[in-house]
Design a binder for these strands. Structure first.
Length: 504
RNA sequence: GCUCCCAUCGUCUAGAGGCCCAGGACACAGCCCUCUCAAGGCUGGUACGAGGGUUCGAAUCCCUCUGGGAGCGCCA
């Protein structure tokens, strides 16, 4: 797997020798005192499994964890849950790391890899075995399948019936798994910041496998060990984990650990309100970079999905980290609205100076095989930022700056590059030539307006033919800015060709 | 089937008993501005799933129903 460090617990001794943490209450975790002036620092983690791409849903979870840590001056930890050796891939790890880096969701600790912590897991498993919290189970897969099928047929909840709980002798030739012995009675209360207390009856919880017969520990177990070892104070994750939580709490208790506070976030649905799929937004978050979205805009949009701050829609990252809090998080699932994401992106682009957008526009142009050498991309970005929803749209809208039109858009040409427009075109040419070296937006505007006045027509009668002449179509930024960016030489060259076209 | 979660405009949401015959945003329509396209401004339509309670008063509290979702793996 990956090459990151293994997390080494401050005290790698036995579980019971670990100093016990002071209790963390539900909503007043933030500053409990143990000796008068000790303050608990918030520690959150994002724990993706590298079995697929990092998509929008995962990013939202990561964002909330990151924001919460930042907001409270805490620590954000990245942990790669790669215990599924069959499906975990290095490519997926790379994609997660790249995505987090692009978005700027930097981790203070990690990435840690669970596959590097096997010694620690085994240590806990042995302790469970000794203390009776764990036991060997020799049931075969077939046997378990059969058991489940029978329960389903009887309309019971499929669960392990504990048939190996009291077995004292091994079954020859069978490598056992280790199961965690859940309490038989009582209840487990999950203190959830967004949902409030959620109560589970222990009876509902069966004995889950914590060590596979191939020696690999399993998810729920590793999570419990890691969250404790890494001192996680707030587990922020998708609400599809709610049902796992009581088991994790039970294992935490068996370790003598104090469970963290939980915050289960609602799911993100596709635009049609159904589960996110590859057709929707379940593509790698890096696709959004290719599509020309700004990290800040994507984060802004995602932040507003399931969280709100009054009526405010637009947030800078700085505002987000200052205002975000878990108590304003919604409980219900929300659907992706790509139109709003695009709008948000445009709003962010509009706030940025062209010089900041220029390098990003350059990337988009490069991927289109366009060489913008010698052209002022910052000026183009300034001219186009309020007429593009994404950087990709900006790149498309700027194409005519880099190449003379090879043909004119038929409708626009028919209307604006005809005999009627010829006088205006010729007069405009003369007026522009007269500008000489002062080919600036202000001077161009002045000249064109003066010309329109002399001709006794509206500016549109002059600007629109010019627009079609230099851009090939009927849409472009304001004509003064457009001409200035193109430069006198290019403008006159394109104008001459258009005049020829209009006269023929 | 069992357990758990959820429920305000098409979508994202405000709303924590009277300020709400429900506000903002995206999208949509119209108008204004205007050299095109945008951006911006103004206007408009559309929502508290249903039924019972509690209360002088409920989108807000309680119950039931309905609808949606998640989990029930030697996946995470």
């Amino acid at each position: 797997m990956g090459a990151g460090p293994a997390f080494n617990p401050p005290e790698a001794g036995t579980i019971r020798s670990r100093p016990s943490r002071p209790p963390v209450g539900l909503l007043e975790f933030r500053a409990f005192q143990s000796n008068g002036n000790t303050r608990v620092t918030v520690r959150t983690r994002f724990a993706p499994s590298p079995t697929g791409m990092l998509h929008i849903g995962g990013v939202r979870t990561a964002l909330f964890s990151w924001l919460y840590a930042r907001r409270h001056g805490g620590t954000f930890i990245l942990r790669i849950e790669d215990t599924d050796r069959e499906r975990s891939t290095d490519a997926a790890i790379e994609a997660i790391l790249d995505g987090m880096k692009w978005l700027g969701l930097d981790a203070d600790e990690g990435p840690f890899y669970q596959t590097k912590r096997y010694d620690r897991y085994r240590e806990v498993i042995n302790q469970f075995l000794e203390s009776g919290h764990g036991y060997h189970c020799y049931c075969s897969k077939e046997e378990l399948d059969e058991m489940r099928a029978g329960q389903m047929a009887r309309k019971e909840k499929p669960r392990y019936d504990g048939r190996c709980r009291h077995r004292t002798t091994p079954v020859p030739g069978v490598t056992p798994v280790v199961r965690f012995r859940n309490p038989d009675e009582g209840q487990v209360v999950v203190n959830d910041i967004v949902h409030g207390p959620i109560v589970f009856q222990s009876q509902e919880l069966d004995d889950l496998i914590i060590l596979r017969s191939d020696g690999n520990p399993t998810y729920n177990f590793c999570v419990a060990v890691d969250d404790w070892d890494m001192g996680i104070t707030h587990v922020i994750r998708g609400d599809d984990h709610i049902n796992n939580t009581p088991r994790q709490i039970n294992m935490l208790r068996a370790m003598g650990a104090t469970p963290p506070v939980y915050a289960h976030l609602p799911m993100i649905l596709g635009p049609d309100g159904t589960k996110l799929s590859k057709r929707h937004g379940a593509v790698s978050v890096l696709e959004y970079r290719n599509d020309g979205y700004l990290p800040a805009a994507l984060l802004n949009y995602l932040g507003r999905l399931g969280w709100s701050h009054g009526d405010q829609e637009l947030f800078s990252l700085e505002e987000l980290t200052r205002l975000f809090d878990l108590d304003a998080v919604n409980k219900s699932a929300s659907a992706l609205n790509l139109d709003k994401l695009a709008w948000t992106n445009q709003q962010h682009m509009m706030k940025l100076p062209g010089s900041a957008l220029a390098p990003l526009l350059a990337e988009q142009l490069a991927s289109r095989g366009i060489d913008p050498a010698g052209i002022d991309l910052a000026a183009i970005a300034d001219a186009l930022k309020e007429r593009s929803r994404t950087l990709a749209e900006m790149a498309e809208g700027s194409r005519f700056f880099f190449a003379d039109p090879t043909e004119y858009e038929p409708k626009a040409a028919a209307k604006n590059l005809n005999a009627d427009a010829l006088p205006a075109l010729l007069a405009a040419r003369a007026a522009l030539v007269a500008l000489g070296a002062e080919f600036t937006p202000a001077r161009i505007d002045e000249a064109l307006k003066g010309l329109a006045a002399t001709l006794g027509v509206g500016l549109g009668k002059v600007a629109q033919p010019l627009r079609v002449a230099v851009s090939g179509g009927g849409v472009s930024p304001p004509i003064d800015a457009t001409l200035a960016i193109l430069g006198a030489g290019t403008v006159l060259r394109r104008l001459d060709r258009a005049i020829q076209h209009a006269g023929s």
